[in-house]
Structure formats: C-alpha cells, structure tokens
Design a protein around this nucleic acid. Structure first.
Length: 415
RNA sequence: GGUGAGGUGUCCGAGUGGUCGAAGGAGCACGCCUGGAAAGUGUGUAAGUCGAAAGGCUUCGAGGGUUCGAAUCCCUCCCUCACCGCCA
C-alpha cells in the first residue's frame, strides 16, 4: 500500500454503495489471505525447527504443497481487490470544511472582504495587451511564432518589471512573513503528483515529458515543495514549516480552449511565487487565515484593489478543504479577477504523501496538515499593475515598492 | 556515458537462507541522581493494517524470481557515493 487511505473517518461514511461493497469485499479476501499466510509461516517455521534438530522434513514438505497454491491464488485475489479499492479512493475529493458555503459554481462564492478603491480614470482605459503592444514591450505574435498560442514575450522594462515582482515578493515573504526560500525541480515524477492530488484524475491538465521515466512539468510549485515531506516524519518542534518558492508553472489548459484567449491571463507558462505551510492539525484553520493575509499584503504594498472570496463547495478544487481566492481589480474588465488561491488541505495531501510528525501528545506519528497559496501569480500581478497604473499617455507608473528593483525607474514609456 | 561500492527503523549503523521486525548507538519519553541543569544511570521507543482484546498480517530502495522458508541468493529498474569521460 503506497499511501494511507482513510479507514474509519468521515470519507467512509460518505462513500457510495459501490465503494462500500468494494471495501467489504477487500476485507473478506484479506482475512482469508492472512489466515493462509499465517498457516504457511508457522509451517515453514516448524520445518526449520525440525531440520535444526536433524529430523525428517520430507512428509512436512508434501503437506505444504497445496497450501502454497491456495496462498498464491488468495494473494492474487487480494491484489486485485486492493487495487480496485485504492482506485476508488484515489478518485475521491477532499471533504469541504464545515464553514464552507454550499453552492454550485463561482457565482455562489462568498465575498469576505474588499481592500482599496478602484481608481476612476479620466481617460478611456486600455487593457494590458494594448498597453504592452503600444509600449512595444509585450508581444504575443512573436511568441506564437516561437511556440504557439498562450505564450508571451516581454521586453525591456516590462521584462524587468516582471522580474522585479518576483524579487519583491520573495523578499517580502522571507523578511517580513518568516518563510524559508526554496529552489526546487521544475520536473516531477508521478508519485509527487499523486501526493498533491493532480494525479490520477487531472493528467490532462499537465504537460508530460516524452520520456520513459513518467516525468511531468510542474503545474505549480505546490507539487515539488509539498512533496519535500513525502514519506517523512518530522519532529513536532520543527513545526510550523513555512516555505516560499518561485517557479515557472506549466499548464496545458485542456478544457479551457475558449476562455481568456486574449492576453496573459491564461497562459501555458507563467511564473508564480508560492507559499507552502506544514502545520499541526489544530493550527491549520488559523494558518489559512495568516497565509491568506500574507498574499493580501503583497497587493496592499502594490496598492492594487482586491477582494477576497471564500469558494463554495461547487467551486473548490479536488484536494482542498477550504479555499480563499484573492481577486484583483482589472480596470479594463471592470471586475475582480483571480490572482491568488489559498487553500487548507488538512490531512488530504499528507495522507497521500505519508507526511507526518512525531506528536509529543500521543508519542505517535500523526498526519500533518498542509496549506498553500499563491503569493502571487506573477503574470496576473504584472497585468494588474499595468492596467491599474496606466496613465493618459499610455505610460505606466511603477509602484513605489518596486522602484528599488527597477534601478530607480518610476515610469515605463515607449522607447 | 564507463567502472566500482552501496541503499536496513526518526537518524546513524550491524546482520549467518530458518525463533530477525531486525544487534549496537544517537535522538526522544519517563524515572534515578542534582538546589537546578549538564554529565552519569535505569527503563521504554519502527510504521501501516485487521481485531473489543489476545493476537494476526504487511513492510529492510522498487518490481519480479528461486525456496517449505529471503533483509540475506538470482534478474530488471531507480537512487546515492567514489573515480574516469563529457559538459553550463
């Protein structure tokens, strides 16, 4: 068994009749198999003991022959039942937290707070695509030539602004919020993707390498960073563990062909600064609040208006127990768009990964709780800065916190 | 890519085909000692799973095989280390 399936918990009560049947069947076969194993083991020991005394073991060997066949059959049956059961379980999503609102779609998400006031522009606003191309610093056509659709090329000060955002976020989270910076592989194996919940159900969203090692490009830093603790047992006093990591993210965007085709909202490749926490179970609820506030702090320092919503049951991801989305104001769309998603996974990922800690209370290895959130998605932050800081002449003012990273530059102009 | 050596519990590290789930140590927990601590010292301490319990079963990198019986023997793969080659 490669992970720790839930045995007695709520998921089992929640299961379909089909999975209940599968569980019963597995258990029955397992008991039968274990009885045979016990019998076989004790006979083997007996043979060993008699042989050690110099006794005759021939008659005993004959007796054992049929048992061996029965056992082989039982073990094959068990393996099949086990696999059926595990496949059922692997496809079950996490249970929503008790305070998650019920709902069917993103329309049922509940706003929990807003920050800042959308700016009134005295001129017709442009979207980031027009702003970027008028500045000659953002080019989707050439990216289309180099690769294909849903890629971008940035140039000059805009490329630097993109880099500045990454540096600014990493510095803020390490210095002000107490996260440890990480650098990780951008290519991961299947076990890691199973651990965080992308596999087995969401393979279509991933880029898979043409290689017999079953490697995939990461869709988010969450995968390599969270799997840092796969198959590990950490000491309680090390907790909480808080990591920040900048990586590119690769998503095939299968199933969203028609959505957000213009601009850099939805790309196959984008950068993200990710926050990941490993905490004790009793601390995860509070940790989600602080993690979300860390992501919000970036938008506040950048002076970008946003709102925070709690996702309803119907809009949550597969692995999450509770998720806050942070949505930034986009003047060109006159609405808030997602720029960060912060989730508490409770023990769902930890169970799949066998990520545990030694509890001083019970003395046993207990499952950790994992959380993560974007802090923030760089491409979307860049376009939010462009649109919110645009000026009548098409130039873009640089938010003051980013100027040290821009060599003192305060406005991006054409040229 | 080539050659060689390895992968054992929270960690380090022994291990003869048969009472090995695994010596020893570290760490941790509890106790003794102490004014308190350190040192010293005693005891305990793998995980998962089934069971009300007694107890059972699985797991020594992964997967196959040989055997009545595998941590131990054979095969394949993965990973680590060393040296050589190549390389940003």
């Amino acid at each position: 068994m490669k992970w720790l399936p839930p045995s007695q918990n709520a998921v089992c009560n929640w299961m379909s009749p089909q999975s209940r049947r599968s569980r019963k069947k597995r258990k029955k076969i397992q008991m039968h198999c274990e009885n045979l194993q016990q019998e076989s083991k004790s006979r083997a020991k007996n043979i060993g003991a008699i042989k050690a005394k110099g006794g005759d073991i021939e008659p005993l060997l004959k007796e054992v022959g049929d048992l061996k066949n029965q056992l082989a059959q039982a073990e094959a049956d068990l393996a099949a039942a086990q696999q059926e059961w595990e496949e059922l379980l692997a496809g079950l999503p996490n249970l929503p937290a008790e305070d998650v609102p019920e709902g069917k779609s993103e329309n049922d998400n509940v706003e929990v707070r807003t920050w800042g006031t959308p700016k009134e522009f005295a001129f017709p606003v442009k979207d980031h695509v027009d702003l970027g191309s008028d500045l000659a610093q953002l080019d989707f056509e050439v990216a289309g030539k180099i690769t294909g659709s849903r890629f971008a090329v940035m140039k000059n000060s805009l490329a630097r602004l993109h880099r500045a955002l990454i540096q600014f976020m990493l510095d803020t989270h390490t210095a002000a919020h107490g996260y440890e910076e990480l650098y990780v592989p951008f290519i991961v194996n299947k076990d890691s993707l199973f651990g965080t919940g992308q596999l087995p159900k969401f393979e279509a969203d991933l880029f898979k390498l043409r290689d017999d090692r079953d490697f995939y490009l990461i869709p988010t830093a969450e995968v390599p960073v969270t799997n840092l603790l796969r198959d590990e047992i950490v000491e309680e006093k090390q907790l909480p563990l808080k990591f920040v990591c900048h990586t590119p993210c690769f998503r095939s965007e299968a199933g969203s062909y028609g959505r957000d085709t213009r601009g850099m909202i939805r790309q196959h490749q984008f950068e993200k600064v990710e926050l990941v926490q490993f905490v004790k179970p009793e601390e995860s609820e509070q940790a989600l609040e602080t993690l979300t506030s860390h992501a919000e702090a970036i938008l506040q320092k950048l002076g970008l208006p946003y709102r925070t919503v709690v996702l309803c049951t119907g809009d949550m991801g597969f692995s999450a127990a509770k998720t806050y989305d942070i949505e930034v104001w986009l003047p060109s769309q006159q609405r808030y768009r997602e720029i960060s998603s912060c989730s508490n996974f409770r023990d769902f990922q930890a169970r799949r990964m066998k990520a545990r800690y030694r509890s001083s209370e019970t003395g046993k290895a207990e499952l950790l709780h994992t959380l993560n959130g974007s802090g923030l998605a760089i491409g979307r932050t860049l376009l939010a800065v462009m649109e919110n800081y645009q000026q009548a002449d098409g130039s873009i003012e640089i938010p003051s916190v980013l100027r040290p990273y821009m060599g003192g530059l305060d406005v991006i102009r054409r040229g």
